[in-house]
Design a protein around this nucleic acid. Sequence first.
DNA 1: ATATTATATAAGTAAATAATTATACAGTAA
DNA 2: TTACTGTATAATTATTTACTTATATAATAT
Lengths: 98, 98
Amino acid sequence: MKNIELMAKQLKAVSDPNRLKLLACLKKGEVCACDFVDVLNISQPAVSQQLKKLKEAGIIVDRPAGTWKHYRLNEMQQPYIQAIIDHLDEISFQRCDC
Amino acid sequence: MKNIELMAKQLKAVSDPNRLKLLACLKKGEVCACDFVDVLNISQPAVSQQLKKLKEAGIIVDRPAGTWKHYRLNEMQQPYIQAIIDHLDEISFQRCDC
DNA sequence: ATATTATATAAGTAAATAATTATACAGTAA
DNA sequence: TTACTGTATAATTATTTACTTATATAATAT
């Protein structure tokens, strides 16, 4: 895949309000997948699908933790993705007890 | 419109290979709309529609010049858009005689 | 005025997107 | 084992997207 195609794919992954909110939640560190349902106010499968897109674009990574799955930002980002993350205001939310 | 919605709209405008190529062509300065048809290898109306999306997102501006229309990057960009432009390699192309 | 040229808009279409509900899968606990 | 819980996948649907061709608009030239 050409460079510009890869860039377009990554940008497409972040060009959605719900996925930007996911990134905003992740600015402080790891978050349990279950917490996102209340933040976005969409169904659990929808959250799962959005997380998948960010993961496939290499922007976030996951870590299984028993029944749960914790997500965090990839520590290495393309500069243009990092600039987007930097520009997002953090979103605070109610955490589950996992 | 909330901040994050505006951000998503701008990012959506640049999350397409053809529109990224348009920006890459514009890095050096003004370009006549007609030149883009050969660069993207799509129809003239398709080019016109893609330029419109970038313009509506505030990323490029146009300047009528007789029958022609010249496009250039907006001099003020959001930092996350500027980072994308900075990351693009310039594209050189055959210029028309307008 | 008409003809020509560059660009924009309209209408239509195939593919992609983002949600939904239903179901499957995986790990933990009894 | 079975039951329960968190997450992922499948199937469906409405909307959006990015083209196409055809047509309209606007400026220039004759």
